[in-house]
Design a protein around this nucleic acid. Structure first.
Lengths: 145, 145
DNA sequence: GATATTAGTTGCATTTGTCAACTATTATTT
DNA sequence: AAATAATAGTTGACAAATGCAACTAATATC
């Protein structure tokens, strides 16, 4: 048990570095890592709200509010007040927002491509299988909570 | 290829969340995540220097310098100027530093334990195998650079 | 010896994030 | 229905994290 924990921790340290190298979604762009994740999740989540983002990312709602305001000024998102509950605003990407997100994603794709470019096709398969296994095992666990 | 990239990116997003949940090494302690990693790496790396840390974590050397100064004030580390090159200072944890690091590690252990507590012994084995595979595949690649 | 490079420090600026008070709206209690 | 509580989001003040650039001291290179 103890050994296993140490192995998992080692993997985590390792993967923190990988993530750093990938600088997921954001590197060299006009978005911070958090902003990039918010932009992505806004497009990903149907009828996204500030509340959802704040809960999902475990970030202060004030901070989320400011990020969204910035996005709005840059015309990346627009908000539509819910007709059912006027406290709630749904957030949607504008076409410009989708464009910017696509740029981020293209960049991220390139980085991942770079990361696996020297790995044989077969090994990339193994890599992804392993990732899926980890995800499946940890997700099951999370659902039990 | 494209699909594979998407799968890897999905795993990365997933694992970012996991890391967040684990709040690796630091959560609720008197250390920020970065400080915790620096403390760990200082103990991990033989004859650690500020330069090494700054390169390793890709962080500004001024920032590292400040973290180390804070550590020194808290008597967690001490520095020994290299006799060969007096610009260089080796960093060593004091016994208090080792104590604090141990506390962080114990906490991290608990979190990992919590994370895997509902997974069968066998599946934990699969989890770790998968992690090792990922590490091996990506490390090989990194060495080629 | 002059110049360039390197390790580390320091002050300033920026970015990132938290906190608490506030508004508007909806839900709950009595 | 009026009073109260709870919720979504905003705002400004603040604190923490990080980057930048100029600096010192030491070493390396020419």
């Amino acid at each position: 048990m103890e050994e296993q924990i140490q192995e998992i921790k080692r993997f985590n340290r390792f993967y923190i570095k990988i993530m750093g190298i990938l600088s997921l979604y954001a590197d060299g762009s006009s978005f911070s890592a958090t902003e990039a994740m918010v932009l992505y999740e806004t497009s990903n989540k149907k009828d996204c709200t500030a509340k959802y983002l704040s809960t999902y990312f475990v970030l202060d709602k004030g901070y989320i509010s400011k990020i969204l305001r910035k996005f709005e000024k840059r015309e990346l998102i627009e908000r539509v007040t819910s007709s059912k509950d006027r406290r709630v605003q749904y957030i949607y990407l504008t076409s410009k927002g989708r464009e910017e997100l696509k740029k981020l994603q293209d960049r991220a794709n390139e980085k991942v491509e770079e990361m696996i470019k020297d790995i044989s096709e077969q090994d990339v398969g193994v890599l992804i299988e392993s990732m899926n296994k980890i995800e499946a095992l940890l997700e099951t666990k999370n659902r039990r909570d």
